[in-house]
Structures are given as C-alpha cells and as structure tokens.
Write a protein that binds this DNA or RNA. Structure first.
Length: 303
DNA sequence: AGCCACTGAATACAGCCAGG
DNA sequence: CCTGGCTGTATTCAGTGGCT
C-alpha cells in the first residue's frame, strides 16, 4: 500500500460511509453526489487493497479492516475539526464550536444544568462534548487541545496546569432513613460500625479521602467500591450501608430527603473544585470565553 | 415461487478545471 | 493547448420486500 497516494479527502468519505452505512446518505452528508462517493470509495479500495464495505441488503457493512480503522479515524477527524476551529475567531452568538470538558459523573449532574442553560442563552450553537478522562491523562489532553477544560477536585493537576478555584466543600455521610438511627450526629464508633460504599477508583480524585482515613489509622469496613456517584442512591435504598461524599453531592442524590445525612465524626479535609486549562490556551479566545463562563456560573466567589 | 416496484451501489461517459 | 483528476448525469445492475 502506498500511503502517499491517499488523498485525505478520501478519509472524509470513508468516515462518512462508516457513520451512515449508506453511500447516498454519506454523499448527502458530504455535499457530494452518490457516484462521487462511490468513485472515492473505489479509489480507497484500490489503494488499501480491501473492499472496506460489502453490501448487505440496503446497508453497507464495514469489513474487519474498516472496523479496525474506525476509532483511530474518528479521533483523527475530531482532532482535525478541533484544530480548524482553533483558527476561527470566537464569536459566542454564532459559533458552532465544540467544547470538550472533562468532569466526573457527579460533575455532570452538578454543573451541566447550569452550564447548558447559560450556553443556550449566550451561545446557542455551541456544543459541549463531556468526557470522563482519567486524572493522569488530563494534562496531556489539555495540552494537545483534546480537552478545553477539566472541572473537578483535581489536586494532582494544580501544579501542572493553569487553574481557578470554583468552590470548596466538606464531606458528609449518608445512609437510608430507618428506625434506630442516631438523630443528629454520628460518633466515630457508630460511623465505623456501618459497611461503607467507597466511590472512586485508585486514580480518582475522591480517593484522597481514603488517604486521610489511613493517616489517622481509621479503618472502615468497605462493602462496595463503585466508580461513580450516580448509582449510590440505588444501592443505599436497598442496604443499610453508608457512603461518604461531598456535601453538594448529597443535595443532588437526595432531593426527596429519603436518606439521613450526618456530618463526619472525624475532621477530614474537604474538596476544592477547580477548573483547569493549559497555559498554551491562556490567551486563546474561545478557551478564555468558556472558562470565564464556567467561573461565572459555577464559582461561589465569581472572578 | 414468481413477479414487480423500489432502493441503492456501480459504471460509462461527459464536462470542468488546474497545472505544465 | 493538452492531460489528468475529479465530479455530475444517466443508466445499469443487484438485492429486498410485498403481494399473489
């Protein structure tokens, strides 16, 4: 295969067929005629020496070779689109830019309603692409522009990226309401008597609370470790377990007040939620506009 | 099972255009 | 002006599904 022969426009065609499974729809998407797409596909087939798609009824099914190319190609197309967007001066009212943000599942619950409402108001054509990227990959993603901003409790990134504090909050604990629960406060003994739900993986930001307990030589009985917060209410509703989580998160997960919430019986440092970006984008129009919006909308001490 | 209408890919051919 | 690459129109071919 001679890759020098590949006209990159052919990859656009290939990508469109991968998405549509249909040459006519792919042609519509690209603003070409169906034969033009067929011709391009023919050239790609010759260059790559693979049929790439085989017709199955009214559908063009990708071959295994085409499927192997799908993800890398999708990423490449997204990166190219993103790169082109960087060259266009940002005008909120008319921009169709896609902003990529990283946040946790609970971040989505807590931040997206506010952010989306603000966007609908002042940048109605802008799109958000929310990704949950492992903490150790966020810095790279911000640097290469694969992410615009990362929002969350991300102490590991504070030294390595530009950031702005949004708010600070303490931890509380939550369990299903039932007879026999203490009324207002939990003693440490009572707290430790519960089986605990631990939220977050070893890489996640909330794992730092584990460190705090370990340093104090406090050992909890972990009944379950889950990667996300959103499943927690469903688990607590069916068990007598307890979960330790940030106070704002409780408001989101306990809107009907069906769970009992207590202050922690130990003095554990809370979390500081920050918004992060890469220094290379300090003066970048669109990035600056978005982070200003995020800070204005989400910060408890607006910039 | 056979017929028919419909849909969609492939192909033949012509026109346009940029580069040499 | 010629050539090659690309695209569009018109047409053909093949598969599918409904109907009898």
């Amino acid at each position: 295969m001679d890759t020098n022969r590949i006209d990159l426009n052919l990859l656009r065609v290939f990508h469109a067929i991968l998405e549509e499974h249909n040459l006519t729809l792919a042609a519509n998407r690209l603003g070409l005629s169906q034969p033009a797409v067929s011709y391009s596909l023919g050239r790609l087939r010759a260059i790559l020496d693979d049929p790439l798609f085989v017709r199955n009824g009214n559908e063009m099914q990708p071959t295994s070779a085409a499927l192997e190319m799908r993800e890398p190609l999708r990423e490449a197309m997204a990166a190219a689109e993103h790169a082109l967007q960087l060259m266009v001066p940002f005008a909120a009212a008319t921009s169709t830019r896609v902003f990529r943000l990283s946040m946790s599942d609970i971040g989505e619950l807590a931040f997206l309603p506010t952010l989306c409402a603000a966007l609908a108001e002042c940048a109605p054509h802008v799109r958000l692409d929310i990704q949950s990227i492992p903490v150790d990959q966020i810095e790279d993603a911000l640097r290469v522009g694969r992410l615009d901003l990362a929002i969350g409790n991300l102490p590991a990134l504070v030294e390595r990226t530009r950031h702005q504090r949004l708010f600070h909050e303490d931890y509380v604990c939550m369990t299903r309401r039932r007879r026999g629960l203490p009324r207002r406060t939990l003693t440490l003994e009572q707290y430790l008597a519960f089986p605990h739900v631990l939220v977050g993986s070893l890489e996640s930001a909330h794992y730092q609370i584990e460190e705090s307990f370990r340093k104090r030589n406090i050992h909890r009985q972990i009944a379950l470790r889950v990667p996300h917060f959103t499943v927690v209410p469903h688990i607590l509703a069916h068990t007598d377990w307890i979960v330790t989580l940030p106070r704002r998160t409780v408001r989101l997960l306990n809107p009907a007040d069906e769970f009992a919430v207590y202050d922690l019986p130990v003095d554990i440092a809370g979390v500081t939620v920050t918004v992060h970006w890469h220094a290379d984008f300090d003066t970048h129009d669109a990035n600056r506009w978005l982070r200003t919006l995020v800070i204005t909308q989400l910060s408890d001490a607006p910039a």
